[in-house]
Computed example of a mutant assay.
Amino acid sequence: MSDYCDHAPQHPYHGPYHDGEYGFAVAGDDELFERLILEINQAGLSWLTVLKKRAAFRAAFDEFRIERVAAYGAAERERLLDDAGIIRNRLKVDAAIHNAGVVRTLQADHGSFKAWLDAHHPQPLADWVRLFKRTFRFTGPEIVNEFLMSTGYLPGAHRDDCPVQARIRASRPPWMQMPCP
């Protein structure tokens, strides 16, 4: 992450994400779902590409409202695949729709997506990866690691000497509340 802490500040896209989102705990299920879908879409591409398309993703995926995305059918899938504003990868689009349905089930079973994450925290990354692979589509080790770091479940989003790290520590994200094994 050292390179990100060196190069992201002052950048028009990376800067705001680095300074105000990356590594901070996320409470809302729709925001957690957005982060998961953005991480999935980053696979094989640069994070800058995803950040530049973030507004288009929000519009295309109904602001990442889980209940709406979970209800998408063939027409919405084709609309997404025709939308040049987002990453038009059939596997990623299908994963987003499928994973929205999975999150709805997790919400029904655990009260929220966040409660499901909290129920499994803390655990080592390898266990998180196995859990995500059993639960979701298109979630390999790098996607799971970045999702968990970006939402405060795993440490490592920032260097210790990065000024943002002090703000993250002050907010007591999940990785600080219960040490990961």
Rank of each mutant, 00 (worst) to 15 (best):
S2L: 12
H7D: 10
A8I: 11
P9T: 11
P9R: 10
G15L: 10
P16E: 11
P16T: 05
P16F: 09
H18D: 03
D19R: 09
G20W: 00
E21P: 00
G23L: 02
G23W: 04
F24M: 10
V26R: 03
D29R: 07
D29S: 12
D29W: 08
E31R: 14
L32Q: 08
I37H: 00
L38V: 07
L38M: 13
E39R: 00
I40R: 01
G44D: 02
L45K: 07
L45E: 01
S46C: 06
S46M: 08
S46Q: 06
W47T: 11
T49Y: 08
T49C: 10
K52R: 15
R58T: 04
A60R: 05
E63C: 05
F64N: 05
F64Y: 09
F64V: 06
R65Q: 14
I66R: 00
V69H: 05
A70L: 06
A71L: 01
Y72I: 06
G73P: 03
A74Q: 09
E76I: 03
R77S: 00
R77L: 02
E78P: 00
R79M: 05
L81T: 11
L81C: 10
G85R: 07
N89A: 08
L91Y: 08
K92V: 06
V93W: 00
A96L: 05
I97M: 07
H98W: 01
N99I: 07
A100K: 08
G101K: 13
G101S: 07
V103Q: 09
R104D: 04
R104I: 13
R104E: 14
T105G: 12
H110T: 06
G111F: 05
G111D: 07
S112W: 09
F113T: 06
W116K: 02
D118T: 06
D118G: 07
D118E: 13
D118F: 01
P124D: 14
L125C: 02
L125V: 06
L125K: 10
A126I: 03
A126S: 12
D127N: 12
D127A: 15
W128Q: 05
V129M: 04
R130P: 01
F132A: 07
T135C: 10
F136A: 10
F136S: 10
R137G: 10
T139E: 04
P141K: 13
V144W: 08
V144S: 13
V144E: 08
F147R: 06
L148M: 08
M149K: 15
M149T: 12
T151E: 06
T151M: 08
G152C: 10
G152Y: 02
G152F: 02
L154N: 04
P155S: 14
G156P: 12
A157P: 11
R159T: 15
D160W: 02
D161L: 09
S171M: 11
P174V: 08
W175G: 03
M176Y: 11
Q177T: 12
M178Y: 09
M178D: 15
P179V: 11
P179M: 12
C180H: 12
C180K: 05
